[in-house]
Nucleic acid binder design. Structure first.
Lengths: 346, 346
DNA sequence: TGCAATTTTGTAAGCGCTTACATTATTCTC
DNA sequence: GAGAATAATGTAAGCGCTTACAAAATTGCA
């Protein structure tokens, strides 16, 4: 409560206080903190002792202002409530932290306009680099970021045709491989529950992957019953119920993610449909819940943790070198064939 | 790429640029941005137009330095990977955002020392207020925060005996009520799987609640088999298996949270034990998974969203008034009696 | 219309730090 | 051991914004 020698009101020690106490200039104190090896040991010890005694901790604003960077990396994810993002962010944050950087997360609720705002907000708050999900956003936004010199990386996608850097996987290919498995099991009447494909390239690619697989096997991809809905268990339930009223009834329902699939599975049970005897269901992501439901969910495993970690490494490198992220990295997904996929009813 | 009239290297417009263009002083521009009603309309329009045309956006560091606050609220949670925290943080963030504040989250992995570091880090980064989970931390830490003038609020707890402000529920009472239900069902051989109770007052209180209920019904609370382990499905599995090897075998396993309970449930199935015929299992939190497993989990419902929202409101009020949070708010939990609780085997 | 009260705008002094450049101390080299 | 090369430290100029205070403009009222 009581400062020994307060001249500034809040009474917090400043660099100058430390300098005075350690009998050096403020420049030396600053160097001790930022590049300790540029200061001789004896001096450094003296300074650090003063820091300790005063309980000094640098003022963030001042540092950001003078150094023209904040040591903050921003990430905008669709929602914190899906375990896939939580997991990736956890890894992302750990890696950043190990490198002295701080993560600032915001969520967009899958709404492009909110994402736009959040990007501006994070940049205004001094994010030195940005992690975004997917590639789908306006050219103007990318120009804004480029003008600002903020390195950007897109996660969750890998598309050889897109020149912008990304860390992720080929959504289309992953879904195609899953779909091939479904078709191989004998299914001809497929249906899909997807997220809204506007402004969501991951969802769009997954739908495309399914259609590709269908076309390749001579099925009518254009006729695919497709419901676009929000990612939630409840929406998955409703969409599934709706699909089951179609004639002919689909024998396999491909879901855009595990959350939808779990909803579908639940509704199937409620409707008295046996899975996979009456209808097969697949997901995407391989979240924890996938192995907990009964029967366990056939899905695509995505290396979320690795994606988060590597995303951090790529942005750190960009920050360190001062060069925007140039390369894209493709991660592999793999199929997890579990209990919800079986042959169609005879 | 090309700035019309660059004098500073990065070429970003500053307050001064806007002022010049709008033909006013920098003070006026600043006022337009921060308290628009203190500027006459004609001027304001002129200024905002200039802001628009220049694509101006304020420098965060400079603003923080001059205003001595950052508009940032920090939160340190044990982990982002548990849905309960994700959900609460989502609500917390939304409420903050609606009030022009930004959330900075960090996670401590349930380790007090990491939490300590993170608190310092967030404060150093200019967090104007802090949300923490539980009350369990050193006096020194609280002193540090008080000295810094940072309002603090503890979530997830409500303890009438603790003078520090909190928003949450009475963990002990909630668990006691659940335990009473278990005992009422006829169980006498109880066992518990908990998180480590060191540095985790929520876990400690839940254990205490169970013991209270036992004592009240004449059971030997001291003899309660208690396994302390990390919150994860896998750890829940292992702990459950261990408990089932005891003689006499517990007929009801009370878990400190739903994640542990789901692990226990899974292991029960693997061991060929019928739930609740052979053994009853209960959780705590009522996360989404609780209703998805088979049978659905008996647990305690916690209003995570409301907690997050109200936490934000309380801190916002503290920030606005300049007075630390004084009151504590108690939220109600309620029992969700579902399929995993039944009478003990005959 | 004239003067005081009120509103709007301007002036300028920092906020606490980093860093280019200047200065001083130390180490090498022959 | 003198002079050059190198390392350590100091000096001081901002970084871009907010805000107390001063000045100017506007309004109200007799």
């Amino acid at each position: 409560m009581n400062d020994d020698k307060s001249d500034t009101l809040p009474g917090l020690p400043t660099l100058a206080d430390v300098a005075e106490r350690a009998n050096v200039s403020t420049a030396t104190v600053s160097r001790c903190l930022n590049s300790p090896d540029r200061v001789v040991e004896a001096t450094r010890e003296r300074v650090l002792k003063a820091v300790q005694e005063l309980g000094y901790s640098p003022n963030f604003g001042a540092r950001a202002l003078a150094a023209r960077r904040t040591g903050t990396v921003g990430a905008i994810i669709p929602t914190m409530e899906n375990a896939i993002f939580a997991r990736a962010m956890q890894a992302f944050q750990e890696e950043l932290r190990d490198n002295g950087l701080t993560l600032l997360v915001a969520s967009s609720a899958y709404r492009p306009q909110v994402e736009d705002e959040q990007i501006h907000a994070l940049v205004a708050r001094g994010a030195d680099a940005l992690l975004l999900i997917g590639h789908d956003r306006s050219e103007a936004l990318y120009q804004f970021l480029e003008r600002r010199g903020v390195p950007v990386l897109a996660a969750w996608v890998h598309d050889a045709d897109n020149p912008r850097p990304s860390i992720g996987f080929d959504n289309r290919k992953a879904m195609r491989m899953l779909a091939e498995e479904v078709i191989r099991a004998g299914h001809r009447d497929l249906a899909m529950i997807s997220a809204d494909i506007n402004g969501n390239d991951r969802a769009r690619e997954r739908v495309a992957g399914l259609r590709e697989a269908m076309a390749a096997r001579g099925l009518d991809a254009e006729a695919l019953p497709l419901i676009q809905t929000r990612y939630s268990i409840e929406h998955g339930r409703q969409a599934f119920a709706k699909l089951m009223r179609r004639v002919p009834r689909p024998t396999a329902v491909i879901c855009g993610n595990d959350v939808l699939a779990v909803g579908a599975l639940q509704m199937a049970r409620e409707m008295g449909l046996h899975v996979p005897g009456d209808v097969s269901i697949t997901g995407f992501d391989d979240i924890e819940i996938a192995t907990l439901v009964e029967p366990p969910l056939t899905t695509v495993h995505v290396p979320h943790r690795a994606m988060g970690r590597q995303a951090a490494q790529m942005l750190i490198e960009a920050l360190r070198s001062g060069v925007p992220v140039a390369e894209s990295v493709e991660l592999q997904t793999d199929l997890r064939l579990r209990g919800t996929l079986g042959p169609p009813p005879a």
